[in-house]
Measured scan of single mutants.
Amino acid sequence: YDEVAAQGEVVRKLKAEKSPKAKINEAVECLLSLKAQYKEKTGKEYIPGQPP
Rank of each mutant, 00 (worst) to 15 (best):
Y1R: 02
Y1W: 03
D2W: 14
D2R: 15
D2L: 15
D2M: 04
E3Q: 14
E3H: 05
V4S: 00
V4D: 01
V4L: 02
V4Q: 03
V4E: 00
V4M: 03
A5M: 07
A5C: 12
A5S: 09
A5L: 11
A6E: 13
A6M: 14
Q7D: 00
G8C: 06
G8P: 05
V10Q: 06
V10N: 04
V10G: 02
V11C: 02
V11H: 01
V11S: 00
V11D: 01
V11E: 04
R12V: 06
R12G: 09
R12T: 05
K13G: 02
K13D: 03
K13L: 09
L14W: 01
L14P: 00
L14I: 08
K15P: 02
K15H: 06
A16T: 10
E17H: 06
E17Q: 13
E17P: 01
E17C: 07
K18Q: 08
K18C: 09
K18P: 05
S19T: 01
P20V: 11
P20Y: 01
K21S: 11
K21L: 10
K21A: 10
A22V: 06
I24T: 05
I24C: 03
N25D: 14
N25W: 03
N25M: 14
N25I: 11
N25L: 08
N25V: 07
E26A: 11
E26L: 06
E26R: 10
E26I: 02
E26H: 07
A27Y: 00
A27H: 01
V28A: 10
V28F: 03
V28Y: 13
E29V: 01
C30T: 13
L31Y: 14
L31I: 01
L32F: 10
L32V: 11
L32A: 14
L32K: 14
S33D: 15
S33N: 15
L34S: 07
K35Y: 01
A36M: 12
Q37K: 08
Q37H: 05
Q37A: 14
Q37D: 13
Y38V: 04
Y38S: 03
Y38A: 04
K39F: 12
K39W: 02
K39N: 08
E40V: 06
E40R: 06
E40T: 07
K41E: 13
T42G: 04
T42Q: 10
K44C: 00
K44V: 03
K44N: 15
E45C: 06
E45H: 09
E45R: 04
Y46S: 02
Y46P: 03
Y46T: 03
I47K: 11
I47R: 11
I47Y: 07
I47M: 11
P48A: 12
P48Y: 06
G49M: 10
G49A: 10
G49V: 10
G49H: 13
G49T: 09
G49L: 10
Q50H: 13
Q50M: 11
P51Y: 01
P51M: 09
P51F: 10
P51N: 08
P51K: 11
P52S: 00
P52M: 00
P52H: 06
